[in-house]
Amino acid sequence: MTLFAIRNLHILTMAPLDLDLAAGECLAVTGDSGSGKSLFLRALADLDANPGELFLRGQPSTSYPPWEWRRQVSLLPAESSWWLARVGDHFPGPEVDLHQRLAEVGLPADILKTPPHGLSSGERQRLSLLRVLLNTPTVLLLDEPTANLDEKNIALVERILKRYQQLHESALIWVTHDLAQARRVATRHLRLRPDAGHELKEL
């Protein structure tokens, strides 16, 4: 059954894209820099206007309030942003409930008290991931979620995402430049080439 449907989506100069994603499916997206991978994800999160149409469980994106759509179809950007003084300020809800979730991504509870700019890129990425997962998105759009991470952190992030995908039957769209990673996490592969169009194949 289709969970997330993309119709007539325009990315750069490529032919309009149609795509169906099932619950629990992961699509890997690759392409050279400038091929429109990030623009693709931004369009899906409705951050850029696009003539195409998006459907979640058959309902068009326009029938959702935009903030509700972005909670359901959530983009994890390549670079996370932190705008408040302490890490914990970015997480709504009681702090006690967070401790368990932090432990699941291998982070200590007292990290909530630290300022965000003092964190390592691995810590920042796991926190940013945890922050978006707390919204329990139905479709997760991942923009190179393991870029700039060491092997240990890559494996950890992949494991967290896999677990979430299985637990919530959510669909993932995973932009990566690493074909080995695409084979590890995804069942289908979309390659974006602005000069030649896009190419979809099974992995």
Binding site: W67, R70, R71, P77, S80, W83, R131
Partner: peptide, 11 residues
């Protein structure tokens, strides 16, 4: 970046 980051989180 941070304004859009907040939009992405559903604000």
């Amino acid at each position: 970046k941070s304004i859009e980051g907040r939009l992405m989180l559903g604000e």
